[in-house]
Amino acid sequence: MSRKDLNIWAIFGAPILVFALSLTGLIGALLGDGVWDAVFSTLLASTVVVTVWALIRRRR
């Protein structure tokens, strides 16, 4: 059985999204306080959320 190779976007789509979200979170949290800390920390938390999602849903 041979499956077709994924293209570059299928491979890197999710990682690029997480990369962009975490960098925005890292830098954004520098710019504001209070509520903004929570908002930007949530963006950085995308790393943890995606990992937990993968460990549950993509385990096989």
């Binding site: 190779d5 994924l6 299928a10 491979i11 990682p15 995606v50 993968a54 460990l55 096989r60």
Partner: peptide, 11 residues
């Protein structure tokens, strides 16, 4: 990862 969907863990 060219044949594995993102996040695959072959447990």
């Amino acid at each position: 990862m060219r044949r594995l969907p993102f996040g695959t863990v072959r447990a």
